[in-house]
Design a protein around this nucleic acid. Structure first.
Length: 431
RNA sequence: UCCCCGGUAGCUCAGUUGGCAGAGCAGCCGGCUGUUAACCGGCGGGCCGGAGGUUCGAGUCCUCCCCGGGGAGCCA
């Protein structure tokens, strides 16, 4: 008999079904025993009474946490059961019975302990909905771009040059030559967008920054897009459409998971319900200073400044036109004010920080070479990148969205390490 | 790299002016027919992160080191 998944139990009320899963938790009360089973799609309470037979009744008491099992019985609606449905168990078959106690109990644990057991922690009732929402975010990004005719393409992960700067690269040995793990696929997407028109990719990127905060990972996933003949204004519109699409998809498809995380989908929908705010860097600095956080024009936003911006608006806000001096070499200058870059960061609401960085790209070889010089970067490794400005250069723009930051916002998770199955952080490479 | 906090039972923690090493949970045994981190009774469980020092006596005070957590800078 094929098993039924717990998320589909509402369609099987009154039926006799099998569930294949793991024993999450159990409670015993003399002649009635409750087993909580998880199967990856959710949790369900099984009720075991002596009517299930002596073997099943005994197993309901003796099986330890995280025993794998097949359990059969009748589905019924039951208001006393968590989730509203329960299984009246008539059959219980162990698959594997652990002989040592599962390290992660139903009580509290410290972060260090949980991180040491991340491979087991992901089975817990707060972790599974976060990872399922992550899945929905990634799917929504893909379907958004697919619907708009973007071509999914790839950027290399092993690269010979830096995108963002040289201090934050992971060096490695490439058959005797220096190579690095990519910090961003952007430069390569600029090349493929000249071939395919509009492109995107979702992949891992690596920053060797000694960041030790709740919103940084050493290895994280970026969703990057690049479109030919797209200007700065069009770029912002595209980003706004993407973010709204993702939020609406998650709110619609992951209601149960959001509820398990006590995250209100109505709040998320309200946050993206109206047009995102747009302010210039200059306005943002003034706003930050008004809120009491010290900052000079020409500084990048620190965490307190970003928080102040984030909480000032009830929805995402674009901060446009940063001083070019604090932005990377590949951004096009604002023709009206050449000391500013045609760029924008998108700040998520509620203090979840920057989730997108994007810009119109420099599109003449002369400007590119000049800006490489200003950034003290050698032109040789960027020859191929300069070539894109030599043959059929077009105005083009793109952006990168931080997948984990987005998941963190949508799930309301305090620390970014819980938004990816195996986070890589400053002092942690295990498991 | 800098600042702050912590390391005591498998886990989460308490430990008084320096004076016999404690609790809850987990585990094991027993009880209970509607539990929701069930509850009730019982049992076992310790290199107090490491090294040195002060002291009659150190989990407790001092020095150094190791490890973890939180935050800053930088960024998505």
């Amino acid at each position: 008999m094929n098993p039924v998944y717990i998320e589909d139990l509402d369609r099987h009320v009154g039926s006799d079904v099998w569930i294949h899963g793991w024993l999450y938790h159990k409670r015993s009360s003399g002649k009635i025993r409750f087993i909580v089973v998880r199967d990856g799609t959710g949790l369900v309470q099984g009720v075991v009474t002596p009517e299930a037979g002596p073997v099943a009744f005994e197993l309901a008491d003796s099986l330890p946490q995280e025993a794998s099992l097949r359990v059969g019985g009748t589905v019924r609606a039951e208001p006393r059961a968590p989730g509203g449905f329960e299984l009246a168990v008539s059959r219980l078959e162990p698959v594997h019975v652990p002989t040592t106690p599962f390290p992660i109990g139903p009580k509290e644990h410290g972060t260090g302990f949980l991180m040491d057991h991340r491979h087991l922690w992901i089975r817990s009732r707060r972790q599974t909905p976060i990872l399922r929402i992550r899945d929905a975010v990634l799917w929504a990004i893909r379907s958004f771009f697919h619907e708009r005719g973007f071509v999914a393409t790839e950027a290399p992960v092993l690269v010979g040059t830096s995108v963002e700067g040289t201090t934050t690269l992971f060096p490695l040995d490439y058959f005797g030559n220096p190579a690095y793990l990519s910090q961003s696929g952007q430069l390569y997407l600029e090349a493929t967008c000249a071939a395919l028109g509009k492109v995107y990719w979702i992949g891992p990127v690596f920053r060797a920054e000694k960041s030790k905060t709740r919103r940084h990972l050493i290895e994280f996933w970026m969703a990057e897009a690049e479109q030919a003949f797209l200007d700065h204004e069009g770029n912002l519109a595209l980003q706004e459409d993407l973010v709204r699409y993702v939020v609406e998809a998650v709110a619609a498809e992951r209601q149960r998971e959001l509820a398990e995380l006590e995250r209100d989908p109505a709040l998320l929908l309200r946050e993206v319900g109206e047009r995102f705010a747009r302010i210039t860097y200059r306005e943002a600095v003034a706003l930050v200073r008004d809120s009491g956080v010290e900052m000079e024009f020409g500084d990048d936003f620190g965490a307190p400044a970003e928080d102040a911006l984030s909480r000032h608006f009830g929805h995402p806000v674009f901060v446009e036109r940063f001083p070019a001096a604090i932005k990377p070499f590949y951004m096009k200058r604002d023709p009206a004010q050449p000391d500013l870059a045609l760029c924008a960061d998108l700040i998520a609401p509620e203090g979840y920080g920057e989730i997108i960085g994007g810009s119109q790209r420099v599109d003449t070889e002369e400007e590119l070479l000049a800006q490489l010089r200003e950034a003290n970067l050698p032109p040789e490794p960027y020859q191929w990148y300069a070539d894109l400005r030599r043959w059929g250069s077009v105005p083009h723009s793109g952006f990168g969205l931080g997948v984990e930051r987005t998941v963190q916002w949508l799930t309301g998770t305090a620390h970014i390490r819980e938004t990816i199955p195996f986070p890589r952080t400053l002092d942690r490479l295990y498991p």
